[in-house]
Design a protein around this nucleic acid. Sequence first.
DNA 1: CGCAAGCTTGATCGCGCTCAATTAGGGTGG
DNA 2: CCACCCTAATTGAGCGCGATCAAGCTTGCG
Lengths: 263, 263
Amino acid sequence: MTTALIDAPQRTIRIASVPATVRAASPVAPLRTQCSACHLKDLCLPCGLSGEEMQRLDSLMFGRRKVAAGQTLYREGDRFQFIYAVRSGTFKSSLTLADGREQVSGFHMAGELMGLDGVANGHHASSATALEDTEVCAIPYAHLTELAASSSNLQHVVSRLMSREIVREHSLMMLLGSMNAEERLAAFLLNLSQRMKARGYSSSEFHLRMSRAEIGSYLGMKLETVSRTFSAFHQQGLLEVDKRHVRIVDIEGLQRAFESRVH
Amino acid sequence: MTTALIDAPQRTIRIASVPATVRAASPVAPLRTQCSACHLKDLCLPCGLSGEEMQRLDSLMFGRRKVAAGQTLYREGDRFQFIYAVRSGTFKSSLTLADGREQVSGFHMAGELMGLDGVANGHHASSATALEDTEVCAIPYAHLTELAASSSNLQHVVSRLMSREIVREHSLMMLLGSMNAEERLAAFLLNLSQRMKARGYSSSEFHLRMSRAEIGSYLGMKLETVSRTFSAFHQQGLLEVDKRHVRIVDIEGLQRAFESRVH
DNA sequence: CGCAAGCTTGATCGCGCTCAATTAGGGTGG
DNA sequence: CCACCCTAATTGAGCGCGATCAAGCTTGCG
């Protein structure tokens, strides 16, 4: 996939139109969702939309789909038809390197969208794997853009979500380009903490859904270093760690570890 | 800016509408551009559009703007109104760290777009600095989305450009997360080589517009390491280097250095 | 009970960072 | 014109962070 890095960033674009019947052929459970009735509506796609616009979204009747722990929702190279909103559980996004190792590019929790990287050329650029039993809404991208054509607000929302993804990756690049192991892990934990808080969970105590190896891949370090850094934070009195259970004891201290280099 | 990393990735969105008179107030030179007459039209924004759609783009009459070497086109935090297409010259995008150091997040050549990260929240998330004397088209984003509302193809083009940016950054994350110094510099040079070729220049011999420090910042290594790696490639018979002038002697060898780890 | 997977911890090594000296090129002013 | 300064780049020496290799522990599952 890193071939994208040595491709010219802009080449001839061919507009693929997805047939309107595509939804019927997809492996989506019969259950359908209305955004207006969803408990995640303030976090997820419809966030910021007016009542009228949300009703239009409702008309799309997104199909739900369950993905068991360890299963993939889509793989890199798969034809791009849907973007997915996480309803429950946690996913990782990853790319596969030539030698078979994986590079984790993100973690996704309830209310977050996945798959926007597929818009670029009609195929998913990464794989999405469930880290626990999960449920998603499958949003047919072609229908979404149809709808967006008649609602500039919805169009803005989709654009902003994509732009936000760009900004998020900027931040991660900065992390990978200029931070040491402690700063990286502190940034990761603080980010997780905020996202837990936004979802109504404790911001100071939570269960990690991902392995040390997955954290390490995401942060650009080896699993042993992740483990050692957890231990170091414990010895500094910042954390209590038991396997995947984490309690943040001194959040200001953790922020200091993070801000030691980056604002 | 890395605060984005510890922000919940989705929060309440407010739709800002840009007044239609905004263009008149902007610091754009009176010269106006029509995409259909531009020599870059196959690389740039209108790439893939039909004649009719290109005429609609023409109606926006993008203003041109010259930016002298070392000057910024926009800075992080600036109000987002325009995206910019490079007409000539080279830019770097960068973020500023708390300690004043900069982190380069990209280089942009003729035909490439800049500023899409500003869509996320109405402010530019990065700064754009000219590495030589340059000229850009200033594309009023609000007008572009207006136009896109009536042309699904144009909407797709804009979405794809944003998605492509996401994919590009995925690749860079992979580079920063899992490659060593030689692999990073090889990837960088091969990418540059392809982009030069796409613009009709020699793919094997070109002038670097950026300093060793800027390359290093972009690739997550120190300028001394960049310099040493250039020397190493020279000793391996892959390159001839004289300051910023580079000639690729053995492109297959360079690809091997790149593919040693990543496909 | 045995086996495998995930995590921790220790010991050692090496890549890339840091500090430092040198050279070359460009701009400026006397 | 040269003296001077400033910046960019190269190269060397030494060190430290994080990778690598390895051992041991816990937990879960057949």
